[in-house]
Deep mutational scan, measured.
Amino acid sequence: SISSRVKSKRIQLGLNQAELAQKVGTTQQSIEQLENGKTKRPRFLPELASALGVSVDWLLN
């Protein structure tokens, strides 16, 4: 799922939720909701993929 991929990649990069949120241009709460499965397809998906160094396709599939 996107939530597990985001969380595992974030941890692999040594980032906390607030640091990832800053790179993406969103809030820590938005990252938390995404990782908890409350958000399925965030509006900041391209920025998120870029910050994590992955493709949008990788996040979604």
Rank of each mutant, 00 (worst) to 15 (best):
T26L: 08
V24G: 02
E32H: 10
S4G: 10
K7C: 09
I11N: 08
T27N: 09
G14P: 00
K38L: 15
Q29T: 11
L34D: 01
G25F: 05
L34Y: 04
V6H: 01
T26S: 07
Q17P: 09
E32A: 13
V54K: 01
L48E: 00
N36V: 10
R10K: 00
S3M: 08
R43N: 13
A49V: 04
S1Y: 11
K7P: 02
R43M: 12
A49W: 01
R41H: 13
K23L: 15
K9H: 05
L15N: 02
T26I: 11
S4P: 03
S4N: 11
R10N: 00
V54W: 03
A21Y: 01
G25T: 03
A18W: 14
N36H: 09
R41W: 15
G25R: 06
Q33V: 07
I11G: 06
L52I: 04
I11E: 11
R10H: 00
W58G: 01
Q12E: 15
K38Q: 14
Q28S: 10
T27H: 07
N16P: 05
R5E: 02
L13N: 05
S55M: 06
K7F: 06
N16R: 07
V56C: 09
V24T: 09
A18M: 11
L13W: 05
S30F: 14
A51T: 07
E47V: 08
L52E: 00
S55C: 06
Q29H: 13
S3N: 07
Q12F: 10
L13P: 00
Q29K: 14
P46W: 13
L60F: 08
N61F: 13
L60E: 07
R41G: 08
N36F: 08
R41M: 14
A18L: 13
E32L: 09
L20D: 02
S1G: 11
V56D: 04
Q17A: 10
S4I: 12
L15Y: 10
D57T: 10
Q22D: 11
S1L: 11
L13M: 11
A18C: 11
I31M: 04
L52Q: 00
L13E: 04
L48S: 00
K38N: 13
L48V: 06
F44S: 03
K9Y: 05
A18N: 10
P42H: 09
T39V: 14
G37H: 06
K40M: 14
F44I: 05
L48P: 00
T26W: 06
S55V: 05
I11K: 10
S4F: 11
K23M: 15
L59F: 06
V56S: 06
